[in-house]
Amino acid sequence: MKYNLAFRYRIYPNEIQANLILQTFGCVRFVYNKILSKAKEIYELEGKNKVITPASLKSEFPFLKEVDSLSLANAQMNVKIAFTNFFQKRTAFPKFKSKKTARKSYSTNSVNNSIRIESTFLKLPKLGLVKIKLHRDIPQNYKIKSATISQEPNGAFYVSILTEFQRDIKEVPSDNNIVG
């Protein structure tokens, strides 16, 4: 059986990396709001759950090419999930993300080992090697699936690394099977 487990670490990006992380936060929020706006428009006109892709926004907004494309794709997926939850009556209509109140974070997926730990550094797409405080190791048999980079109000950066691992659980006999 496969399980997921996340590990959270403090990261110490250099100035260039920190600026790119902040830019990515803004772009993810921007893309989320643009996609939500277009989805809302389609919903009001057609009553359908349709979501545009971030790639369709890149020609109009070239600055989106500078950040990790998977983070923008995850913003699209978040809008899609929010709309699905709304249509299944699990939640209210999706809300736009505010620059002031939105949580500063973005997620990116590991494709072809693009997220990995190398000594005291974490390799991330577009950012390269970022210094990481590894206070506990990720077991060797755990596969890194994604990383969510976030910033706390005090300015500290963190990464939450989502891993997947396989565990075989042997069947334990129940008390009903014991003959006494």
Score class of each variant (00 low, 15 high):
T53Y: 07
F7G: 10
F30M: 09
Y9Q: 03
Q23S: 14
A73G: 12
K48R: 15
N154Q: 07
I132H: 05
N14P: 11
C27Q: 06
K131E: 03
L5W: 08
G128V: 03
S119Q: 08
Y3P: 00
F93C: 10
K170I: 00
T148K: 10
G128H: 07
N19L: 15
E44V: 02
S98N: 12
L124H: 09
Q140T: 14
Q166T: 08
R167I: 13
K99W: 07
T84A: 14
A6R: 05
A75E: 07
M77V: 08
K97I: 06
K131I: 01
T148E: 07
E152T: 15
Y12A: 10
V159W: 05
P94I: 13
S160N: 12
R167V: 13
P62G: 04
N4S: 10
L70F: 06
I161G: 06
I144W: 12
A55S: 11
I16P: 02
E152Q: 14
F87G: 10
E66G: 04
I144Q: 00
K126C: 07
E41G: 04
I52E: 05
K95G: 02
P153N: 10
R90Q: 13
G128S: 05
T53M: 01
Y158M: 10
I16D: 11
R90I: 02
I21C: 00
Y106V: 00
S69G: 06
R29S: 02
S71A: 15
I138V: 09
T108S: 06
K80M: 12
S98I: 11
D68R: 00
N74R: 07
F165C: 01
P139N: 11
L134H: 11
T148W: 09
D137C: 07
K48N: 13
Y142T: 08
I144H: 03
K38Y: 15
F83T: 12
L45R: 15
V130T: 11
P125Q: 04
K40E: 13
R136Y: 05
N176I: 11
V159H: 01
K65C: 09
E164K: 03
K80R: 15
N177L: 09
N4W: 01
E60G: 13
Q140M: 02
Q151G: 05
Y142G: 04
V28L: 06
E118S: 08
F165M: 09
F61G: 07
N141K: 11
V79L: 05
